[in-house]
Amino acid sequence: AAGSSDDRALLSVASLFPGPACPATAEHGPSAAASARMRIVHQHGPCSPLADAHGKRPAHDEILAADQNRVESIQRRVSATTGRGKLTKRAAPVQPAPKKSPGHSASSSTPSLPATSGRALSTGNYVVTVGLGTPASKYTVVFDTGSDTTWVQCRPCVVKCYRQKEPLFDPAKSSTYANVSCSDPACDDLDSNGCTGGHCLYAVQYGDGSYTVGFFAQDTLTIAHDAIKGFRFGCGEKNSGLFGKTAGLMGLGRGKTSLTVQAYDKYGGAFAYCLPASSSGTGYLDFGPGSAGNNARLTPMLADKGPTFYYVGMTGIRVGGQQVPIAESVFSTAGTLVDSGTVITRLPATAYTALSKAFATGMSASGYKTAPAYSILDTCYDFTGLSDVSLPTVSLVFQGGACLDVDVSGIVYAISQAQVCLAFASNGDDES
C-alpha cells in the first residue's frame, strides 16, 4: 500500500479504509528466540474472534473521546505516583459486596474495596486469545501494557456482567482453579484488595467509570502452547463498562500482578508485539527474550520513573527527514511512556505545535487541501479524488539514538477520505 523515502512516504488512500473481510494472510511465524506467539487482531476488525457481521463498530468520535479519557487517566496516575503534573489522584471507592456463591466460602462481613481510580481503558484496543483453566477454555481479552492485573468475567457472576461473546469462565469446571487466600502475600500485590471469608478480593476501576471486582484467584493460563501454572488473575463477579465483547483484560505492565512479572522465570520479563497496519490485518504478541528480532533499535527503559508504565526518554522528532526545532528539555520535563492502548500519540504542547507546523508545511508544499479539525485532531486534509498521497515522514527519536520511523499507516488517522488527520495530539501544556 505504500512506499517511502527518507523525507516522503507514499500512502494509498484506499488502504486507510480496509474492507469488511479478513484477508487470507500468512501467519507470522515465531521468531527464533521467542517462546510463545499469539495472534493479535483489532477488537473491532474483521479478523477478530469477537467480530459480528451485524455488530456496530464504535464511531470515530467515540474512539477519540475514549482515547482522551485513557490519556487523562494515565496522566492522573503518573501525577499521583511521581508527583509530576498538574492533575491529582481522585478517590473513587467501589463497593463490590460479593455475595455467597457456589464454590466460594461465605462471609458475614461486607467487604469494601478502596479502588484506585485512574486505570486507563480505551475502545481502540487490540485483543489476543488465551486459554484458562483445566481443561483450558478460550477467552479473547484486551492486552494492555498500561495496567497490571489480568482478569476475566466469572461465573456465577454474583452481581453483574456485561455481555461477552464467549461463555463466561466457570471456576467450577476447572480442576486447577483456586481462590487466593487473604493471608497469601500475593493478595498484598494488588493495588486494591479486600477479604471475604478468607478469600482475597481485587478491584480495578478505570478512568471512564468502568470497573471489575471479584475474587483474586489462580489457575493455569495457556498462551500459545505454553502453560503457566498458578497464574494469578481476577475472577470478576461485578463487571461493568466499555469492554466491548471481550472476556476481560491481560495486564502487561511492570507491576507484581502482571503477566510479565508473574512469568518472569519463564520468559525473562520480555515480550514484544506487532500491531498490524490496518484493522483488517493480524499482528502478534510474543513472550520470551529476543522476540522482537535482531533489528530492534533499543532505548533504556526508565524504570525509576514510576510503577506500571513503560517510561522511555524521547529526545526529538524529525519530519520529512529534518529535525524539528524542539528543545530536548521539553521532552525531559514531561517524560514519555509507550502504551499499547492509547490510540493517538500525545506530545507536550510545544513539541506538538512544532510537529504539526512542520507537517503542515510539508503538506502545503505538495498542494494538499486542508480539512476541518476533528475532535482532538487539528491538522487535517481532504484527499477526495486522490488515490495516492505523499506524506512527510515522521520519526520519533529516543535516548541512545533509537528511532521510530513511523510507518505510513501510522502517520495519519482517517475519519473519511475528505478528513484525514495527522495522528498526533497535544497534551495542552508542557507539564502534564
Binding site: H28, I74, Y126, T145, R254, T260, V261, Y264, G268, G269, A270, F271, A272, Y273, C274, L275, P276, A277, T282, G283, Y284, P289, A292, N295, A296, R297, L298, T299, P300, M301, A303, Y310, V312, M314, A334, G335, T336, L337, V338, D339, S340, G341, T342, V343, I344, T345, R346, A351, L396, F398, A402, L404, D405, V406, D407, S409, G410, Y413, A423, N427
Partner: peptide, 30 residues
C-alpha cells in the same frame, strides 16, 4: 507525560525487556 500511542507503533515489533531494562522498536515486523 508524552505517550507513544498504538497508531504510531503499527508494523513495528515493540519490545519490552524488564531484565535488560530496554524498550525496542523493530521496523517491518508485521
Amino acid at each position: 507525560v508524552a505517550i507513544v500511542g498504538n497508531t504510531q507503533q503499527k508494523t513495528y515489533g515493540v519490545l519490552y525487556d524488564l531484565g535488560r531494562k530496554t524498550v525496542g522498536f523493530a521496523p517491518g515486523s508485521c
